[in-house]
Amino acid sequence: MFGYAIRRVLSALPVVLIAVTACFFILRLAPGGPFDGERALPPETLANLRAHYNLDLPLIQQYGIYVGRLLQGDFGPSMVYNDFTVAQMLWIGLPFTLMLGFTAFVVGTVAGLVAGSLSAVNQNKLPDYVLVMLVMVGLVVPNFLMASILQLVFGVYLDWFPAGGWKPGSLQHLVLPVIVLALPHAGRTARLMRGSMIEVLGTNYVRTARSKGLGTRLILARHAIKPALLPVVSYLGPGLSYLLTGSLVVEQVFALPGIGKYFISAALNRDYGLVLGTTILYMLIILAVNLLVDILYAWLDPKVRYD
């Protein structure tokens, strides 16, 4: 089990390295640089700046330096926010993004599982139709549109929740962003759960359980949930990655202090270090979640062995 986890991590490393390399060279080969501001800098200053950030060295050497530092856990300096290192910038934005993302992930997953199961148990009855319709709304209304609508309805007209901004520790400010982020995830999860639950409820082993007189509740809780969760669990990894993507927009619409805001402006300003740092950190987080998901999967499906 432990060895399995190690192997999984090791097998992901080459991909991380390839991704880092690709990002690094694409960024550098593109026209423009971090110091092409609106006002042109004097050539001397520019040369100094470039030298300071090693931008005057051959590309391959810069790459070597970057990877070398990275292996020591150093993401390098931010080239636009010049008083900060990338690590500091990440430390400012990332905790918030992760807090928002994981809250929405948990809320969306739970809501999706409950909605999907309820739908399946009441298949083709009123609760099922209502839920299927709600799920459809969650699926087809893009999150930026949903954000605007909720902002307008609950933030402006009804004035139940703040329409944007952030006060540390304020749950009020989190309600709308979490709903917007969680909805599509909940929708996808619910669809998967409904489908797989319906399939499981029709299996022979559920029929066996019914023939044993176990009662609906016990059948659902013990016999149906675990196998029905399997396809849902394998969606959780990609699901989280969708969700973190969505947080880019949500942070922008609700003016929240996450990493998303910095990422887009960093890419626009060619802040090489910050863009790479954010990408790498996202990758690591998502790979870690995938690893957890795989372990969860193996627990649910005894046929999976760590060989």
Partner: peptide, 26 residues
């Protein structure tokens, strides 16, 4: 719910396909 008092206790059933009639996750 009423039937569950008797199914499995007084009247039991065995099915054709033993490969799929047992729950694979338990």
């Amino acid at each position: 719910s009423q039937l569950d008092l008797y199914r499995g206790k007084d009247i039991a059933m065995i099915f054709q396909d033993p490969m799929t009639s047992l729950n694979p996750t338990l």
